[in-house]
Design a protein around this nucleic acid. Structure first.
Lengths: 122, 122
DNA sequence: CCTGAATATTCACTCACAAGAATATTTAGT
DNA sequence: ACTAAATATTCTTGTGAGTGAATATTCAGG
């Protein structure tokens, strides 16, 4: 495991906000975008950044790209997400993101996950 | 606590190597420099960087500047150092640093700590 | 006062990354 | 073929930070 890569992903607020959501379930770019209320290109770039650094994987389903935190355990990432749950994810901005997400229909991502279940990664 | 600041400090190998040493005891710049075998300006800058981000504090004692991890608890930092102890600090490079450090007389830092004990921080 | 040790800072350069706007690509549906 | 949605990429610009070399600063001791 490359610890530095993990930390590089964690040292940006937008990325922390994304991980806060992805911790719950796989999501498409558009879901994240809507929940965070940030420009599409920014979301797409940050997701690509985390994928490049090994924190996320993605797969394509029709027009959507679903990103998720791989199920293969990454101790350092998991520990930090757990820690952030107490320290940060309860804070206003992160709560708002989740509230907005809860109002979005994210079922496409779930369907995609089932469809691509084994052909995942890359 | 600013989580992002913590992660910004952790996402560089040289800084991780420094924290690996400082976790044990306060040290002067020259001690770190000798243990890590890196240029003086680099060590000094990285220490200043971590101080600027609130991970370290320092105090002057004669000609020396002693850096240390503040005793006030920083949950996120502590958790990560603990985690890194298992994941990273056992690796070759980090072991070598500690081996070199063990051969250095770092008593100045200890004396300084006692002297400046309460006048610390800044 | 001068010297040397310890440390900090500056300089010049390079690189990674961030931002927003715009454009390209892929794909499903008509 | 055409369109629109979803996503990725490109472009430009700006900034923070990394590097080594060199220089400045601080301070104790002779």
């Amino acid at each position: 495991m490359n610890c530095v890569s993990v930390y590089k992903c964690l040292c940006d607020e937008a990325r922390l906000r994304i991980l806060n959501l992805l911790r719950e379930c796989p999501l498409c770019v558009c879901h994240v975008q809507e929940a965070l209320q940030l420009p599409q290109s920014k979301i797409s770039k940050q997701l690509a950044f985390m994928k490049r650094n090994g924190l996320l994987k993605s797969y394509r389903y029709n027009n959507w790209t679903v990103y998720e935190i791989p199920s293969e355990r990454n101790t350092l990432l998991e520990e930090n997400l757990r820690c952030l749950q107490d320290l940060l994810f309860g804070e206003s901005q992160f709560k708002k993101d989740k509230a907005r997400l809860s109002k979005i229909d994210t079922s496409v991502a779930c369907v995609a996950t089932e469809q691509c279940c084994e052909s995942a990664s890359e």
